[in-house]
Design a protein around this nucleic acid. Sequence first.
DNA 1: GCTACTCATATTGTACACATTTTTGATCAG
DNA 2: CTGATCAAAAATGTGTACAATATGAGTAGC
Lengths: 245, 245
Amino acid sequence: MQKLDTFELASGGLAPERSGEAMLPATRSAWLVEHLRQALLDGRYPPGSRLNEVHLSQELDVSRTPVRAALQTLAGEGLLHHQPNKGFTVREFLLTELVEAYDMRALAEGLAARFSAERGLSDDARRTIDAALSDGDRALSGSDDLEAQRAAYAQMNQAFHGAVHTAAKSDLVREVVRICQRVPQASAHNVVAFDLAGIRRRHDMHHAIYHAILAREPQEAERLMREHVVSVKISMIENIARRGR
Amino acid sequence: MQKLDTFELASGGLAPERSGEAMLPATRSAWLVEHLRQALLDGRYPPGSRLNEVHLSQELDVSRTPVRAALQTLAGEGLLHHQPNKGFTVREFLLTELVEAYDMRALAEGLAARFSAERGLSDDARRTIDAALSDGDRALSGSDDLEAQRAAYAQMNQAFHGAVHTAAKSDLVREVVRICQRVPQASAHNVVAFDLAGIRRRHDMHHAIYHAILAREPQEAERLMREHVVSVKISMIENIARRGR
DNA sequence: GCTACTCATATTGTACACATTTTTGATCAG
DNA sequence: CTGATCAAAAATGTGTACAATATGAGTAGC
């Protein structure tokens, strides 16, 4: 039978910083939800591992009650799995699910682009996207080393896609995208570790998508965004295959 | 744990029936999650209304602890909204979100059909869909009154779509569809209250989709399923507009 | 009459005690 | 050694007390 050993985070002063910081969540529960969600998305807890309520509460220096509250919320979000009388475990995602997440995300982000084109961009949104694209142009034309360019692109990429999601003004689309990015490795900052030529090509697609949205061409914007995400998917699959060898 | 039978014996009025049923959840929390989720999807709690923990626990005859557990889970699922120190409120969905839910669902169900066609149907799935479609044929060719035909079609419709979702073998797709159906009026049994001609037309589309899946034609299956859901969306919008007058 | 303040009440957040279930692992028969 | 048995230990589920916060009624001051 599978080992049900409880997973403990190597805790060297892991207890959360709670004093002197700005904009802290109002309650312990809310803080724990954010903290644990980030830890899970970062993969700091091994998939399938069991989260022991007592250990967590001791490590994080709160009682079991807010820990349970956070775990229940995260289970509702689908990041954790819950079995009655057996507790919470970190949800495992198969490789097939990663690929499916990209297929789904291509459709959801395509819809976001369609809605953005239909509804038009606010001045604020336009400024945000302009800035993101300019940052990308600058980063890719500069002579920084590859890693710096990748980092800059990653940040720009998130800003661009985030702005489109916001411009779509659809909570539903945002939620679906979030669900797709829940699968580890599917989040935006993990998908850019490819070759520079690919990054340039994808950046050009960003420009094209922006252009279609500005021109109020919903069908074209949706088509381009789908293509864009699918191309990221393909790159990622190639990347995994390359690493596999 | 405190005696569970205390609750069962004491349950006199508002408290839900729990004895004699098969497959009831192992814990109070799990039962509450199911009970409250169904109540919310049925619209038994007004959108925006506040859910008082003490009142709920009294009505349902449990302590606050499992009530809070259930509310936290449902908030994670997005059916409730939570504000620190102010409690849980029933999430409100705007009319635009209902329409968006259909757009998103068309894409998600289309993906389900694509995956089903790619992966092929199990004997079990084929039997299920065969039965559903035959039921539909029989109901629509019979001479029952309109309401009976609608009811039969509603049940068949759910069976058909459910079978396709299952055949897609993708948790992600299932989750996205669930999110789309979370919007009140978007669930399958609410969308069939249209004219008989429309029902017949949609039933024909079911046959066509099934045919494409059986023939292992992913693109065609996806295209047909999208058209199908969009046609339901349009009927629903017309229906709402008609009622609006 | 209106605003701002005060305090009583209601509601939510947290800790903890205890009941129940699961898991562990020591023991023993074969 | 293998597998079953069963009691101890550990972990989760639930109830409840109390703390922190929000709410609302009433009142003083203008």
